[in-house]
């Protein structure tokens, strides 16, 4: 995986250069938002299960997907869905801390769409759920931090569809 810092270092090293002004500017804004990111991660970590519960209630619980014939019907499949939501939230938090989406690509999205297709998990409903998670999380951490982590939830969605 990469983070905001290692990405800049690697791209400078390939050219054998010091970090130029634009890169240092990027780095500076990452450092400045460090407090915001760390505080948001703290809040999310303390409320993770509640965020997942609210997300599922908001986007999935009262739709056909939990009824017989739906892909969340049977407790086992419901539990698998909750677990995946848990993963999205945790990896979204990692990506926010890193300021870089590569950990999502490597450890979440790699092969996820194919897995979901083969299991019959509807991608549309998953994307709606991740969007709901973005809203629930934003309510909890505030608008500014919500925007930070929101881009990574959007990244998950675009990787799925």
């Amino acid at each position: 995986m990469q983070d905001a810092i290692t990405t800049l270092i690697n791209s400078s090293d390939v050219q054998g250069k010091y970090l130029d002004d634009a890169s240092l500017e990027n780095l500076q804004s990452y450092f400045r938002s460090g407090d915001l990111r760390a505080r948001a991660a703290m809040t999310i970590s303390a409320n993770a299960s509640m965020i997942v519960t609210k997300t599922v209630a908001k986007a999935l619980l009262y739709t056909d997907i939990t009824a017989p014939g739906g892909n969340m019907y049977t407790c086992r499949r419901y539990a698998a869905c909750v677990r995946d939501m848990d993963y999205f939230l945790r990896y979204g938090t990692y990506a926010m801390l890193a300021g870089d989406p590569s950990i999502l690509d490597e450890r979440v999205l790699n092969g996820l769409k194919e897995t979901y297709n083969s299991l019959g998990v509807p991608v549309g409903a998953t994307v709606r759920a991740v969007q709901a998670m973005k809203e629930v999380t934003t309510e909890m951490v505030g608008a500014e931090a919500g925007r930070e982590i929101g881009t990574f939830f959007d990244h998950i969605c675009s990787g799925l569809s």
Binding site: L27, Q28, Y30, F31, R32, S33, G34, D35, R37, A38, A41, M42, I44, S45, A48, R90, T93, L97
Partner: peptide, 18 residues
């Protein structure tokens, strides 16, 4: 999730960034 101690490390790392 990262522990509070780890997050504190990140915070102080960012604070000394400039």
């Amino acid at each position: 999730y990262p522990t509070p101690g780890e997050l504190r490390t990140i915070r102080s790392f960012c604070k000394t960034g400039e």
